[in-house]
Nucleic acid binder design. Structure first.
Length: 294
DNA sequence: ATAGCTACCTGGGCGC
DNA sequence: TGCGCCCAGGTAGCTA
């Protein structure tokens, strides 16, 4: 029998972590002008239509007016018509260093020289993340048009999210991870929201009542808001690290990563199963599987 | 149109 | 000791 080994639980950025990064970037980069851009790994700019050299040339000289976010996407509003879009992927980090004393980390992918004698580094071990320059639309860069508003957005509308969720013909966990329904939810907070709701991820969305859909979305919103409240104050002033070396986002988790440990509600051991090529963690007593899995 | 699958990545952990 | 396999998962793009 295979025991699931303890893992570092939450090192993948989801909504609260990305918001922490946005705040750090706002603090350190807003109002700064980009003097230079160096691409150390071409994959980090693969979404940029101009390629690495075009990216660097177009970015140099631009001023960062604001740092915005939708779901897990970040973008820097620039003084041109372009936006610098950033996604952290699985392992992306931004770090700020004094230019005179900036370490060359082995996972350094892009370095931006700023006009206050600092560098803004983009690090990414697994290279799922990256930066790209794109024209900004009315208020959203075009490549982000399909991303739904997230629960931290002041204009997030729970009722319309409920409608989108119930319009899906799929399993509940799949819909929670669908960034066109609600953005910002990844594997970790999907499992936490399901656990709090008492719903199994395989429940068919089309059979959810409005109240049930509202419940699970409200729990998703709550769990991410709470994580932000805990983690949002604990990053170092000159060190914008999405992962949070202490793992401060992972301590409160009830289901995700807790295989074989007692459910905090009923004591039944948490079960781990594979779903969508990912791990899913749930309490087999609190979260009954639907009798007819869709 | 839409639901669902897979490729894309690296490095730590573990079995042999 | 060292090799090689497995695993983590967000998203674009593809297929059916």
């Amino acid at each position: 029998m295979r025991r699931s080994k303890p893992r570092p639980a939450a090192d993948v950025p989801e909504l609260p972590e990305v918001e922490v990064v946005r705040r750090g970037l706002e603090r350190h980069a807003q109002g700064r002008r980009v003097l230079s851009a160096t691409v150390l790994h071409p994959r980090a700019v693969r979404r940029d239509p101009a390629g690495a050299s075009g990216f660097a040339a177009a970015l140099a000289g631009q001023r960062i007016e604001a740092v915005r976010r939708r779901g897990k996407y970040l973008w820097f509003a620039l003084d041109s018509a372009d936006a610098l879009i950033a996604h952290l992927g699985m392992s992306g980090q931004f770090r700020v260093h004094p230019a005179a004393d900036a370490p060359e980390h082995r996972h350094l992918r892009i370095r931006l020289g700023l006009d206050d004698d600092t560098v803004l580094d983009f690090l990414d071990q697994r290279t799922f993340g990256g930066l790209a320059l794109d024209p900004v639309g009315a208020d959203l860069p075009a490549p982000l048009a399909h991303i739904a508003r997230d629960p931290l957005d002041p204009e997030f509308d729970l009722d319309s999210a409920v409608a989108r969720l119930r319009a899906k013909r799929t399993e509940l966990k799949r819909a929670l991870l669908d960034q066109t329904v609600v953005s910002g939810i990844g594997n970790i907070y999907a499992d936490e929201a399901l656990w709090r709701s008492g719903f199994h991820g395989a429940r068919p969305t089309q059979k959810l009542t409005r109240t049930q859909a509202k419940t699970v979305l409200q729990h998703a919103s709550d769990v991410m808001t709470e994580a932000l409240a805990v983690g949002g104050t604990s990053f170092d002033a000159l060190y914008v690290n999405v992962n949070g070396e202490s793992g401060y986002f992972s301590r409160e988790l009830s289901a995700y990563g807790q295989a074989d440990r007692p459910c905090p509600r009923c004591g039944t051991p948490i079960v781990r199963e594979h779903f969508m090529n990912r791990s899913s963690f749930f309490c087999p007593k609190c979260q009954r599987k639907p009798r007819r899995p869709s």
